[in-house]
């Protein structure tokens, strides 16, 4: 190995660069192979004709023509966005309220916070199986005296199923977001509240004028996690709907539509086209949130990226 030893500085710069390359390579390799290559692969496959058994062949425009003219695709996209928006609307206020509650000290509060945290430890599959049995209209919770109003097909009625799914998602993820808010709230300087109290601000005023504005970065983080995360609600919906995205197509969000097309109807080409739509949705969403969070970061000292 010949090192250009024109000067001590050059040698050091070279060592620095080679060390940097060596450090950068493993992540690049791993992510490139299983992230970037499949990303390009899914786009290529969306033009392929492959039933999962034989060898992939060329399909030209056929998959895209079929997917784009299939109302099912657009329904799935609309459902995905609906899940995203409704989940945010449900989870954010509850998580914020719980975060406020948890942030204060006290034994009871700490104990409740631990209780709330538990769903986060369960896997989506465990949660799905538990809720599926729990919401069984005949043998589930609805059979308890006094809880008869639960004895309805919450997962079976096409008009209710999506909201039930959104509720179970919230049940799982609210603790995480409550935790983010709790941490955010605990970092608000007490002096701000003291000053406001001296000015005679009411409790509500203090919430709107101090707590919420001070939490804006937490809100951005939590919102971004929720929105991008909602594109990936696959496991839970898969289990809750018995792998069908049903009843009917009531909970068939994009990831499920992709899975069903690819691994149940065995049309990998079309499934790849749906997957590409999912990728594009993700990219669009991340552009929007980056822009939005960039906007809120205007007065920061340093660039995020």
């Amino acid at each position: 190995m010949t090192v250009p030893r024109t000067s001590y500085q050059d040698a050091r710069a070279w060592r620095r660069r080679s060390a940097g390359a060596a450090m950068a390579a493993p992540a690049l390799l791993l992510f490139g192979l299983f992230g970037v290559v499949p990303l390009l692969g899914v786009m290529v496959l969306s033009f392929a004709d492959w039933d999962g058994l034989g060898e992939p062949g060329w399909a030209g425009q056929a998959n895209w023509a079929a997917v784009l003219t299939d109302p099912g695709t657009w329904d799935a996209l609309a459902l995905t966005i609906k899940v995203m928006v409704v989940s945010w609307l449900v989870q954010t206020p509850i998580a914020l309220a719980l975060g406020l509650f948890q942030a204060a000290t006290g034994r009871l509060r700490a104990m409740l916070a631990i209780l709330w945290f538990l769903p986060l430890l369960l896997s989506a599959v465990a949660i799905g199986l538990a809720w599926q049995a729990l919401l069984d209209p005949t043998f589930g919770l609805g059979a308890t005296p006094g809880l008869g109003w639960l004895a309805r097909p919450l997962l079976g009625d096409p008009d209710l199923a999506l909201y039930t799914v959104i509720f179970v998602i919230a049940w799982q993820f609210i603790p995480f977001h409550a935790l983010l808010y709790q941490a955010g709230i605990r970092q608000i300087p007490v002096s701000l509240y003291e000053a406001a109290a001296i000015d005679g601000a009411s409790r509500t005023d203090r919430f709107w004028r101090i707590t919420l504005p001070q939490l804006r970065y937490t809100i951005v983080t939590s919102t971004t996690l929720m929105l991008v995360g909602s594109l990936t609600y696959f496991d839970l919906i898969f289990v809750l709907s018995g792998g069908t995205g049903g009843p009917g197509t009531a909970t068939r969000v994009l990831p499920l539509a992709m899975y069903i097309t690819g691994f149940q109807a065995h049309d990998m080409g079309r499934a790849s086209a749906i997957a590409t739509i999912l990728v594009l949705t993700g990219l669009a969403l991340s552009l929007v949130t980056t822009k939005w969070s960039g906007f809120t970061r205007m007065n920061s000292q340093q660039e995020g990226s």
Binding site: P137, R152, P153, L155, P158, G246, P247
Partner: peptide
């Protein structure tokens, strides 16, 4: 009312 909640398995 509950048929669509029941999975055979």
């Amino acid at each position: 009312d509950n048929a669509s909640s029941l999975s055979y398995d």
